[in-house]
């Protein structure tokens, strides 16, 4: 497996685990309370740091094990794969944005809006990275 592909796997698994934990652990019963926004913020700070640390460590280990590929410049196939992945990720992002706009008019609590936005960003990222992994294998 190429270095670039491994990095994509690291990002995909890290995002899935980190945000999987966040959405499972978030106290949904209190989501409408005024403090829920701060609860979300308090969870997101260590989560973001955890993602940064996990990805940095994993990338460094893979870079050491795949030294010859680390400095390889992106070529036309890599760029095509990235464009297609980003294009596919655009759809969940747009759907999520419109859903959020709709929820604003229903007077949804801020923590719910924050979590919806977050879910759409995470979903879009998973679609982008996941499709790029698939395209690395199939194209």
């Amino acid at each position: 497996m190429a270095f670039r592909e491994k990095i994509h796997w690291v990002a995909f698994v890290t995002m899935l685990l980190a945000f999987g934990w966040y959405f499972l652990a978030f106290p949904w019963r209190d989501a409408a309370s005024p403090g829920a926004l701060w609860t979300a913020g308090g969870m997101l700070i260590p989560l973001t740091l955890g993602i940064i640390v996990a990805m940095t460590v994993a990338t460094a280990i893979m870079a050491i094990r795949n030294r010859s590929e680390v400095n390889l410049a992106e070529d036309e196939r890599d760029r095509a794969i990235h464009w297609r992945g980003t294009h596919l990720a655009y759809y969940p992002m747009v759907v999520g944005t419109w859903a959020c706009i709709g929820l604003i008019f229903t007077g949804a609590p801020p923590a719910i809006l924050l979590n919806l936005l977050l879910a759409m960003v995470v979903l879009s990222e998973l679609v982008r990275i996941g499709s790029q992994i698939w395209l690395y294998r199939r194209s």
Partner: peptide, 18 residues
């Protein structure tokens, strides 16, 4: 000026090069 993986993909008929 491309990666080994790109040459492999072209060879296998998986990728259409420019």
């Amino acid at each position: 000026g491309v990666t080994r993986q790109t040459i492999a993909a072209i060879e296998q008929g998986k990728y259409s090069p420019s």
